[in-house]
């Protein structure tokens, strides 16, 4: 599989601020790649470098096999982009903005444009200044999907959309993926990423902290158990790979490392289980494990030593 986006050791400084600090990102052709990180982690900065809007201060980057800074125009012919904060020209109508934006890549496919306007339930005749955030987002989404591209770069594309429109968005992602396109989807809506993405990259403070398929990453996280059982907390807690054991009403609640599931299940089976809830490891857990550590450390630092 060829890599459509290949960035390694990416550095971007603004004055004394180091927005990107050795970030690595590689997106293979044909995949939907999730790009995760908390606010201020450098997601939008990375995307702006990938689009050649700003120039990396260090590291190497290629997009569609081209240098995004030097060959920006050539690369953009095959890239559809939805910014995180869509700012439209207030005096243009939504329809005009859609046509203008697609014309910069060669023009919309007429049937596709009409279908999208209908699916997103969008009124293209209003001036952009009167659109809500969700409607502005729709303009950028329709413009992005109305002309086939080989790479879609989407920066938190569903912010401001209601759940029905989010579903429309997911259908479009599925459609372009079927056509063989590649998608880089920046988000902090984890359910969206879990549902759509083949692989994810997680960044923090301008650095890549985790990258891989969801099942690879799940391997790093834990499954949550809530059991009504005769076994006491100490017994369960002494098993290898079991963490955070505590009781909640009549339930025993604990987390188990993925590698240790087998022996824990065996131990539970022999202890007389009357009720059992198992929550699969979610991206959310993974996310919190990476950023939760930061939070607790921050709180820790506030305590006087």
């Amino acid at each position: 599989m060829t890599e459509l986006i290949e960035a390694s050791g990416l550095v971007k400084t603004f004055g004394r601020v180091r927005a990107l600090d050795g970030l690595d990102l590689s997106v293979a052709s044909g995949e939907v790649h999730g790009f995760l990180g908390p606010n201020g982690a450098g997601k939008s900065t990375t995307i702006r470098v990938l689009l050649g809007l700003i120039r990396a201060s260090g590291g190497s980057v290629s997009v569609l096999g081209l240098d995004p800074w030097g060959d920006a125009v050539q690369a953009h012919r095959d890239i559809a982009y939805v910014p995180g904060d869509v700012n439209l020209w207030p005096s243009l109508t939504g329809g005009e903005a859609i046509d203008l934006l697609t014309s910069l890549r060669g023009g919309a496919a007429a049937g596709l444009r009409a279908d999208l306007i209908e699916e997103f339930e969008f009124d293209p005749r209003k001036k952009a200044r009167s659109y809500s955030k969700g409607n502005r987002q729709k303009v950028a989404l329709i413009a992005a999907f109305a002309r086939p591209a080989s790479l879609y770069i989407l920066d938190e594309p569903t912010s401001g959309l209601d759940p029905v429109m989010e579903a429309v968005f997911r259908r479009q992602i599925t459609r372009v993926k079927k056509d063989g396109a590649t998608v880089l989807l920046s988000s902090h809506i984890l359910s969206e990423v879990e549902e759509l993405c083949d692989r994810v990259t997680i960044i923090r403070s301008g650095k890549t902290v985790e990258t891989g398929t969801l099942s690879e990453l799940r391997h790093l996280t834990r499954t949550s158990f809530a059991v009504v059982t005769g076994a006491d907390a100490a017994t369960i807690g002494s098993l290898p790979g079991v963490h955070d054991v505590h009781t909640q009403a009549d339930k025993l609640v604990f987390d188990v490392d993925t590698d240790s599931l087998q022996p824990v299940l065996a131990a539970l089976a022999s202890s007389g289980v009357q009720g059992l809830t198992v929550a699969p490891p979610s991206l959310e857990d993974l996310f919190l494990r990476h950023y939760g550590a930061d939070l607790s450390r921050l709180e820790f630092e506030k305590e006087p030593a």
Partner: peptide
Amino acid sequence: GERAGRATASRTLRGSFGLAWRLQRA
């Protein structure tokens, strides 16, 4: 008041120069 505008862009608006002129016209 505000009237409903065009649903599609005119030929002259398609392109970066068309936009620059349109924004400056008034």
